[in-house]
Design a protein around this nucleic acid. Structure first.
Lengths: 129, 129
DNA sequence: TAAACGCATGAGCAAATGTTCATATATTTG
DNA sequence: CAAATATATGAACATTTGCTCATGCGTTTA
């Protein structure tokens, strides 16, 4: 066995320091803490489903009630409600009640920015194919 | 059974048009096609994992080889490689070979924009609690 | 050229995810 | 107040996902 194991007996890692250890320390110190990065990934996870993306785009121009969203997107009311809950928990949509109906709308201008950035990346990435 | 079923025998939908049918048609016509929205959700799905987010942030300042990434983040080389493949397929990172090592770096300025937007939303959302 | 090294990748598995179905809750209406 | 309507939600199930393990591939080195 010629491989190197670290103090904890973990799998081998490369033996050279391709970057100065100093550099690695710098990177580590510059990075946000893991909790922030986990929260950030959770934000994007919410965007990472086509049903939720379609809901957000449907709300781009104006509020819509749940049943109209379902009709518009060809989904069951239950599926839409489940997804709206996730969007609501992520503070991406808000709602107001009007009689028996509940109208949802975008809750944050960042939603538009984030979607636009994603679209830009998509077009650029496709263009380079 | 007093509920309404549509022509395809689908589950009931609300009987009133809370918005003008015209409005719904407008929204439908304004929305990008479903294929684009699916591709968009795939972009965000890539951002929706804390390991990949941590990799992207580690590459924020400079390129890093796989083994240093693994060391920096406390992950196995295999796990990092698998995630780098996903990031590479999404055109979020690029790589260059130097001897036995392969150095990865961010491939698109949009990565920084998207991450920043996400962070902004996060701070704003937390602030409103 | 054989061994060592750095990285990539397929199989397998446990955990997370999105939908459907059934049902509960809140509001309006007769 | 009872029935109808609009929405929310829990359970169950199939699919997806991210990791580990084993191994393959490309490069360097002795």
């Amino acid at each position: 066995m010629s491989l190197f194991f670290d103090a904890a007996g973990n799998p081998p890692v490369c033996q050279q320091e391709h970057q100065h250890p100093e550099h690695i320390r710098q990177v580590r110190e510059m990075m946000p803490d893991d909790d922030s990065l986990y929260d950030l990934s959770e934000v994007f996870r919410v965007f990472g489903d086509s049903t939720r993306i379609r809901i957000l785009y449907a709300l781009f121009e104006s509020e819509l009630c749940v049943c109209d969203l379902a009709k518009l997107l060809g989904l069951t009311q239950s599926a839409v409600s489940h997804q709206l809950r996730i969007l609501k928990d992520a503070k991406l949509v808000r709602f107001r009640r009007e009689g028996k109906s509940i109208f949802y709308s975008l809750d944050d201008e960042h939603v538009r920015s984030i979607l636009s950035m994603g679209m830009e990346h998509l077009h650029e990435a496709n263009h380079s194919n």
